[in-house]
Write a protein that binds this DNA or RNA. Structure first.
Lengths: 217, 217
DNA sequence: GGATAATTTGACCGATTGGTAAACATTACA
DNA sequence: TGTAATGTTTACCAATCGGTCAAATTATCC
């Protein structure tokens, strides 16, 4: 007698690992492109190259697939913010945070869109993650920024809105990619646009956060 | 004999105007919350308070409703950018553009999310609008900004990425509202966050774009 | 090689999807 | 007030949805 679903075995088969990987890869494709409600199991099955019941053998429901995908991607997604270092020099820390976030927008646009879709539609599946781990991490980093502002290393500003603005400007290039391409036209839609964006954003944030020079020169 | 659908009459009835208004209002609610694929006619019908076939009497298909909604909202949505004035003072123009965009994020979050959903999912229904009217408008305003930079009124920078960064930072407060609220927590989630955002963004952009003082003081 | 467990699939289910047909109700207007 | 046009609803359709089931196939291990 075969106990239903892969979840029952504690040890995971080679096949299980491969297939689950395959499925989550396909799920990322589909969920990031259509959001949870707009995606169908059949679509994912087709992209994954297997039958629908076969998908459901590894993940009991559509929600379970989505959940697994979120869990796997969330940690990686917060890496850049986690790397944000209190000991470092404010200018170089902010500069490299922007760089890293832009690289992620370039290299992992599907992951970015997965979360964007989710949050945009009210975050029905990740509310806990937002109010829990995410908020805690942001609170911690905001404290660092606040200290920098207090000691005059950067201009006095609201650290939360600073973080929001770095998130939004960088992720924009993944989430709104088609709009960026449409506006830039063919001539500037190559991969060079990420370099242009990096140059602009670094200039904007470094310039905008530079503390007023007390000596006036 | 009743010729099917409202579209046939050139003159529109009072009832037609009222009902179409009602429907589009409901459609904005639903489409902005779930995206096109994730929304159903039944949902819209329920929000609009009428039967599904009645909706379909006024708009033949789900796509037609979406199309009509986009058309109605797009013009308004671009108002702030259109108001961007070449003759004005760069600092006050950028400042008030940010203000206006933030006000729209606050007062018309559904409209913002409608477009965000659409663009995020590949803009299958508004590609032409992006490559046509939007691009033209942005090109025109970018030329203004480029002239400002050339004459030293603002720092030398890529005008397109400047516009993108204003779009993304301001719309972030509408599109990612739940995330912003989750991170800020209860204490800072009141309407005051828009004032905080405005203060921060103005400081960031004005500071980041201020031309280097040639006299060093 | 055979038993056993793990994997895969085709057929199918009830619910929901976008949309239609036609009868019915209401409005506008002469 | 009558009647033709407009507006609304009930009942329904085929397609697709998320998900199940049992049978068939394949991998594993002695």
């Amino acid at each position: 007698m075969t106990i239903p679903r892969a979840a029952k075995t504690l040890r995971r088969t080679r096949i299980q690992e491969e297939k689950e990987e395959q499925i989550l890869e396909a799920a990322l494709d589909v969920f990031s492109a259509s959001g949870f409600r707009g995606s169908t199991i059949d679509q994912i099955a087709e992209v994954a190259g297997m039958s629908k019941p076969n998908l459901l053998y590894y993940f009991r429901t559509k929600e379970a697939m989505h959940r697994a995908l979120i869990d796997r991607v969330l940690y990686t997604w917060l890496e850049p913010l986690r790397a944000f270092d209190a000991e470092g020099n404010p200018e170089t820390e902010i500069r490299s945070y922007i760089r890293r976030k832009l690289e992620m927008a370039r290299d992992f646009p599907r992951e970015s869109r997965l979360f964007a879709n989710e949050v945009l539609q009210g975050a029905p599946h990740i509310e806990d993650e937002l109010k829990g781990p995410l908020k805690e991490l942001v609170d911690e980093k905001a404290e660092v920024i606040r200290a920098w502002a207090k000691s005059g290393k950067i201009v006095k500003c609201d650290p939360y809105h600073l973080i929001f603005s770095i998130w939004s400007t960088t992720q924009h290039y993944a989430d709104f990619d088609v709009q960026v391409r449409a506006v830039l036209g063919q001539e500037h839609s190559g991969e060079g646009r990420f370099e242009d964006a990096a140059r602009f954003l670094e200039q904007l944030f470094i310039g905008g956060l530079r503390p007023p020079d007390p000596l006036g020169g």
